[in-house]
Design a protein around this nucleic acid. Structure first.
Lengths: 343, 343
DNA sequence: GAAACCTCGGAAACCGGTTGCCGAACCAAG
DNA sequence: CTTGGTTCGGCAACCGGTTTCCGAGGTTTC
């Protein structure tokens, strides 16, 4: 990114300059100006310089539509969030936008709002605009039907995955994240671990619960009770603690399916006179700073590294656009962030 | 440059067809096909139909670059978030994207990350892509320097405002929101209101505090103590309550500059044995569902209606693109959402 | 001094649509 | 049969660049 002056006044006003105006000012033909600006052809250095300074003087910026028309490339990708732009989409989008911007790509933002009609509308729009590729993101990790069949451009699914195993999908290793959480609890001496999480029909909830159970089993341990499926809410976390305490089975750790649940659990434990982490250690999921840091005590949590995931998705898309596709599912590790709730 | 693949799949969702292919299939000239598809010129209905079904059969979508090239319009706008995409930008962006999508416009997403260099880079990119207009958003309502001088396309500032009073800015009426909050507390019989808010150097904090003080004064009342400036965090809310209780001045309501602060206040009040709303009524700001609903009790809060604000900004931009600019600042009212914390 | 070779830059085709202009074909009227 | 008016659709210029091809002029070589 070359440092430019903030106000190139002559070029800023009115209509953008065209290459023919540049050529006229430099006293050359249009084609020659094009070569000079792109470092093509063989020109006398002096001529090239004359064109360059004319372009600079006029604040010339090539019209991308014209460039697109004969290169076939738009240097643009579409990003479709299948559901509403939310807490999970944002870091994904930021990571992707970052990686694409570094590759001189611009990003079309499309918010499909869980509506298949809108989704297809945006798909058609993007194809009409001849984007070089598409990233599909969403809130849930569950596999979804491909967004289209036999598309002329590469598509990468980020966070969500495509039901077609040949499609390129980038997903977090949620099971691995859950294992890391359990391992950390075991390493700090906990043996009686309960699990409170979201609804059973939610893919993430079952994957994480299953991984937690299996990891405990490989150390010959059982979960305290069954995995407690409920909602992704603080209220459910509080309620679950009341149920746990009522059941009477002792427990010294709770692994939660989300930070919101964990925070509800923390509040309810405190209200019941149980100390965190002394009596009960607590691990959340998502590493959502708003929850994890405001919780008392601050929450150990599993971070899915969504921004890096978005960046990876963008890199894979760029590679596919440049002719090196990486079909199939790709998994990225989660990271455990240790804070006071398990100290 | 790989050679263009010709139709290998019978599926029409495949590679983009050109208008000349449509014309060939329909047995007409290219220009005629164009007229048929756009309802221009005078064609026999039968001919028009033949072209339309040919286009349908090939899944024809006009190449937007070509359309752009001779209309000069891209049907695209840029959206620059000056700071990181976050909690405030999202509803703004969603609202704007919604309104623009309804107008057949696509949106370029640019995340400037509080970096002026990135901002100018994106501005140049957008201008090079000949977007029809630009929306500038950000996290803070404070006026900022114009993003560029004498730009050839309209610019609308949403949430943040431009320091140039001739620029079109759409901002929430934060002072009005604060007044509504105070009025509601007064209407429910509270007389001793404290105010806990964010840092004094933050524009929103001072605007809201000033409005609250003035509204109380117009009823002949004073704030309990001075406005308490601190951070936008729960921890500060908790600390402020300890300070308030320590100071000894009785209070029956706390108006908070954010929901996060309010939640901290709620927790600390409960820990101190004060009941909400019986002993102390509580009003937050932002109506951030995650905080306002999870708070115990659920929080009365001021909603800045950011999504509607984004929609308004987009509508103003569309109007400006179509030749009817609305320069200067525009203010949109806030809405008070009443919940149990002031019941 | 002539032929071969370079250098440099202009002319024009092309990308994929849109649109103004013009002429062919058809019809009715004189 | 000619004239005038209409209808319909083709031709070609144009949008703003990129790229290929080619030729003018200068230089080298024998």
């Amino acid at each position: 990114m070359p440092p430019r002056k903030l106000s190139e006044t002559p070029g800023n006003v009115g209509k953008p300059a065209t290459i023919s105006e540049v050529a006229l000012l430099a006293g050359v033909a249009v084609g020659t100006a094009s070569k000079a600006l792109n470092g093509r052809g063989s020109l006398r250095p002096e001529t090239r310089q004359r064109v360059l300074s004319a372009a600079d003087q006029l604040g010339f910026q090539p019209n991308r539509a014209a460039v697109t028309l004969n290169s076939g490339r738009t240097y643009t990708v579409g990003m479709i969030t299948t559901d509403t732009i939310g807490r999970f989409s944002i870091p994904l989008m930021m990571g992707a936008e970052d990686a694409l911007g570094a590759g001189e790509m611009s990003v079309f933002l499309c918010d499909a709002r869980d509506d298949p009609i809108r989704e297809q509308y945006y798909l058609r729009t993007l194809l009409s605009r001849r984007v070089d590729g598409i990233i599909v993101t969403g809130r849930r990790t569950q596999a979804r039907p491909p967004i289209g069949a036999a598309l002329p451009i590469p598509v990468v699914y980020a966070f969500i995955s495509s039901a077609d195993p040949h499609d390129c999908s980038v997903v977090p290793d949620e099971a691995g994240g859950a294992r890391k959480a359990v391992e950390h609890l075991l390493a700090t001496g906990r043996r009686r671990v309960a699990h409170v999480t979201g609804p059973e029909h939610h893919h993430s909830a079952t994957v994480r619960a299953t991984a937690a159970v299996e990891r405990l089993a490989s150390d010959g341990l059982d979960l305290v009770g069954a995995p407690m499926f409920g909602e992704w809410s603080e209220a459910w976390g509080r309620q679950a603690v009341r149920m746990l305490l009522g059941a009477g089975s002792p427990f010294d750790a709770v692994f939660c399916g989300s930070d919101q649940i964990a925070r509800g659990v923390a509040d309810a434990l405190q209200a019941a006179g149980r100390r965190v982490p002394d009596d009960v250690a607590l691990v959340g999921f998502d590493n959502w700073d708003v929850m994890a840091l405001a919780c008392q005590p601050p929450l150990t949590s599993v971070d899915m590294e969504l921004e890096a995931l978005g960046r990876t998705a963008a890199d894979l898309l760029l590679a596919a656009i440049n002719g090196s596709p990486s079909p199939g599912p790709h998994t990225r590790p989660c990271r455990l962030v240790i804070r006071d709730s398990t100290a």
